[in-house]
């Protein structure tokens, strides 16, 4: 396809950046949640919880803003996907609510059963969110039955096909790997030793899922491969992705947890980039006819809106990046519990 870097493309990239930001940031705290039940003592669980305590809420804002930006820039994509994926999105919402409340209330009571209940809710919700995001991505990669009316009719059972489940599993594995690396930065002593074991296992788990998912994509989903055939330079992304993943065990062994974290962030970013290149210029591929694909042109807002929004983003995003960096800077280092902690 011919490629021109117009405003619609810029917005495609910006939404990609917001969602990748969500994947990287909420990714590690969903990962921490998924690993939560592997620790047994109350103190360890509180350390896990408080490692994400000050940041998880801000991380979720990336999803909210990504959703808002999608609504504004590509209303048809927002409308078609959100109404078409009604049940999974509702489940996603319930899990997000459950998770937020679990984090908030878990340590507010001393009772064992109270804490055990909210620990489970927190962990199960974290895993379910990762799976639901992955299953949705899996369906988007495969293409979904969108008709001439731009509407998407799909049942939950059609969504839960093996390929989508595989992508769901891959997402969960990626977040677990990412979360365990984050935890290595935030813990020390015995707990950190335990966490290092998780990094190993979850990295292996992720590589297996990822390799299987990649094979399945190459074999079954040709339209994701075409753009790479047309523009072989994008293979560089796949290469970078591999390098980033391979770098994780190397940095972990050297005890450079921060660099390991940067590597797994780069791995998630390049995965998102591969996904985006495979889709471009479509947002949603119709399995009925390519004519019905929702693209960055036929699903976009007016040019005026895209321009106004770009101005807003240009004003706002530097501030967003500045807060994000300063918050992570203020809360750098190992977790310390105090009387304001969760």
């Amino acid at each position: 396809m011919e490629f021109s870097f117009d405003i619609n493309t810029i917005w495609f990239v910006l939404i990609g950046v917001l969602l990748a930001g969500y994947g990287i940031l909420d990714g590690f705290d969903l990962g921490v949640g998924s690993l939560h039940l592997l620790t047994k003592s109350d103190l360890d669980r509180r350390i896990l919880l408080n490692s994400i305590g000050p940041v998880w809420d801000g991380n979720e804002v990336w999803l909210v803003t990504g959703g808002g930006a999608l609504f504004a820039a590509f209303p048809d994509v927002y409308a078609t996907a959100f109404s078409g994926f009604y049940i999974p999105f509702m489940l996603l919402l319930f899990m997000l609510i459950f998770r937020a409340i679990s984090i908030e209330v878990r340590s507010k009571e001393e009772g064992k059963r109270w804490r055990a209940f909210w620990d489970r809710a927190f962990s199960i919700a974290s895993m379910a969110i990762a799976m639901l995001i992955g299953v949705t991505i899996g369906n988007i990669i495969q293409g979904v039955p969108i008709g001439k009316d731009k509407e998407l009719y799909i049942t939950v059972f059609e969504m839960l096909n093996p390929y989508a489940l595989l992508v769901g599993m891959t997402t969960l594995a990626a977040f677990m790997m990412h979360g365990s690396i984050y935890l290595a930065m935030k813990t020390d002593g015995e707990l950190q030793k335990q966490v290092r074991g998780w990094i190993n296992n979850s990295t292996i788990f992720f590589v297996i899922c990822y390799a299987t998912a990649t094979m399945a994509t190459l074999i079954y989903i040709p339209h994701m491969v075409t753009p790479f055939r047309a523009h072989p330079e994008f293979f560089l992304l796949a290469f970078l992705n591999m390098m980033a993943i391979a770098n994780i065990p190397r940095e972990t062994q050297r005890g450079k947890d921060f660099f390991a974290f940067l590597s797994s962030s780069a791995a998630i970013l390049s995965l998102m980039a591969l996904f985006a290149v495979g889709l471009f210029p479509n947002f949603l591929v119709s399995s009925i006819s390519p004519e019905y694909n929702l693209t960055i042109y036929n699903a976009a807002s007016s040019e005026t809106t895209l321009e106004i929004m770009l101005t807003m983003a240009a004003f706002g995003i530097p501030f967003v990046i500045a807060y994000t960096i300063s918050i992570y800077w203020v809360f750098r280092g190992k977790v310390k519990l105090d009387n304001m902690s969760y």
């Binding site: 801000g58 804002v61 808002g68 999608l70 809106t305 501030f319 967003v320 300063s326």
Partner: peptide
């Protein structure tokens, strides 16, 4: 949609960041 996106960029990030 523009208003919602603006809310995300100008309000939610500010709120959640400094809330920490």
């Amino acid at each position: 949609g523009s208003a919602l996106a603006a809310e995300g960029i100008f309000a939610f990030f500010l709120e959640s960041g400094f809330l920490a």
